[in-house]
Amino acid sequence: MGSKYRLLPHLERVFAEIGGETAVDAFSGSGVVSYLLKVQGFAVTSNDFLNFPAVIAAATVQNSSVRLDQDLIDTICGPPADDRDFIQSTFDGLYFTAEDRQFLDSAWSHIDRLTGHRRNLAISALVLSAARKQPRGVFTFTDGTKYADGRRDLKLSLREHFRERALDYNATVFSNGRRSRARRGDVFEIPDTTADLVYLDPPYAPPSDDNDYIKRYHFLEGLSVYWRDVTIMANTKTKKLEKRFTPFAYKRTIEDALLRSFEHFADAGAIVLSYSSNAIPEAARIRDLLGKVKPSVEVIAIDHKYSFGTHVAAARRDVSEYLFIGRD
């Protein structure tokens, strides 16, 4: 799930220039762009086809007043409310220490008693704790000891992480005077098709293989629902979830998926698409596709460095990130 933190200043300028009151973030991911739009005063519809990004957006974008009080944080970090052990038994010996896995079960014994945005905030803090604790933030491998480079995130227990992440999420809560909402669903089913601004940041289709977010983030997705109503592939080493098809992840289907997205939001004031130079199709082809819906297309190329991992020795790759801005 590519981070957009370094692109935020560029996006902020583009969004401010477009203006308006309503915005759609159709592939919300980490939620940072949805949150930026909220900060800029838009009423935001934040969407993702995975559950954990939708929960994060509900906690930070839709939520305008609710926070986790210290007593509740202490309760979640305290003794368990029941004797559940699903995570401990299912992921025995995988990813985290026995103490950390016990904490995840224990935390959920309390979260299951919460509703509304308190539940969303608690799940978000738990998900971010697991992502920070897991080296590289992805769950394609089960033994992170070779990435133990001394970083503080790897030294903290998940209980300690949760206390800090809960306060971090509390600090994001504010009201911009408009009603925003978060949803989980298919981009082609987003009902807000006439927003002043639509931001699209789909998975980038690689020249080979596919861009499978479930493979990387299956543990976070499962954790966000306590593995209810999902199917674990028990015969896999990582205990990953079944893949969910998205046409944006494959080179054979990406062009049609992009065009369908543009057509779905044809009545929006402006469409802004982020895409990478190391993916397909190429920039000229994307410009042609967007031009079928929006006659005026501007392309901005931004030098961007992607980090493949969060550890010290993580590989970095210089690419250009394109912003395609389509208007009538």
Results as ranks from 00 to 15, higher is better:
89 S>Y: 10
99 E>C: 14
122 A>F: 02
93 G>Q: 02
35 Y>M: 12
246 T>D: 04
25 D>V: 09
120 N>T: 00
112 D>V: 01
38 K>S: 06
128 L>Y: 11
229 D>Q: 11
107 A>G: 10
71 D>H: 14
5 Y>V: 15
82 D>Q: 12
12 E>C: 06
278 N>F: 01
120 N>S: 07
193 T>D: 11
266 A>E: 14
306 Y>K: 14
151 R>A: 11
268 A>H: 00
107 A>V: 13
182 A>K: 08
219 F>H: 09
134 Q>W: 08
169 Y>I: 02
225 V>I: 01
188 F>Y: 14
21 E>S: 15
301 A>E: 15
159 R>V: 07
279 A>G: 15
77 C>H: 13
200 L>R: 11
80 P>W: 13
222 G>M: 00
317 R>C: 06
326 G>C: 14
150 G>H: 09
166 A>G: 03
69 D>G: 09
160 E>D: 13
97 T>N: 04
88 Q>A: 04
146 K>R: 15
193 T>H: 08
222 G>E: 02
232 I>P: 01
266 A>K: 13
109 S>L: 06
247 P>S: 00
9 P>C: 13
311 H>P: 02
73 I>S: 05
284 A>V: 07
67 R>W: 01
97 T>F: 02
288 D>V: 13
78 G>H: 10
214 I>Y: 10
229 D>R: 12
134 Q>D: 10
210 D>C: 03
188 F>P: 03
241 L>V: 09
319 V>F: 05
32 V>A: 13
206 P>W: 03
240 K>R: 12
226 Y>V: 04
145 T>M: 05
48 D>W: 09
104 L>A: 11
284 A>M: 03
207 P>N: 06
3 S>P: 13
322 Y>W: 15
159 R>C: 06
302 I>L: 04
296 S>K: 11
170 N>W: 04
246 T>H: 09
150 G>T: 08
19 G>C: 10
161 H>A: 08
174 F>P: 10
295 P>E: 04
266 A>V: 07
161 H>R: 07
85 D>Q: 15
168 D>V: 02
253 T>K: 09
190 I>Y: 00
76 I>A: 06
86 F>V: 03
118 R>V: 00
250 Y>T: 09
231 T>S: 01
97 T>L: 05
93 G>S: 02
270 A>K: 09
296 S>T: 11
158 L>D: 14
103 F>Y: 14
287 R>D: 08
173 V>F: 01
99 E>V: 15
297 V>E: 14
17 E>L: 15
199 Y>S: 03
6 R>Y: 14
253 T>G: 07
43 A>F: 01
321 E>H: 12
258 L>V: 00
66 V>T: 14
216 R>G: 06
285 R>P: 07
204 Y>C: 07
321 E>V: 07
5 Y>P: 03
313 A>Q: 10
309 G>W: 12
215 K>G: 00
74 D>R: 13
221 E>D: 06
165 R>Q: 15
328 D>W: 11
136 R>G: 06
48 D>Q: 10
85 D>F: 13
106 S>K: 04
252 R>P: 00
16 A>N: 05
63 N>P: 01
182 A>N: 06
325 I>S: 14
299 V>P: 04
232 I>M: 05
225 V>D: 00
102 Q>R: 15
219 F>T: 10
324 F>A: 12
306 Y>M: 14
250 Y>W: 12
221 E>F: 00
93 G>C: 03
215 K>E: 09
200 L>Q: 13
28 S>V: 12
205 A>W: 03
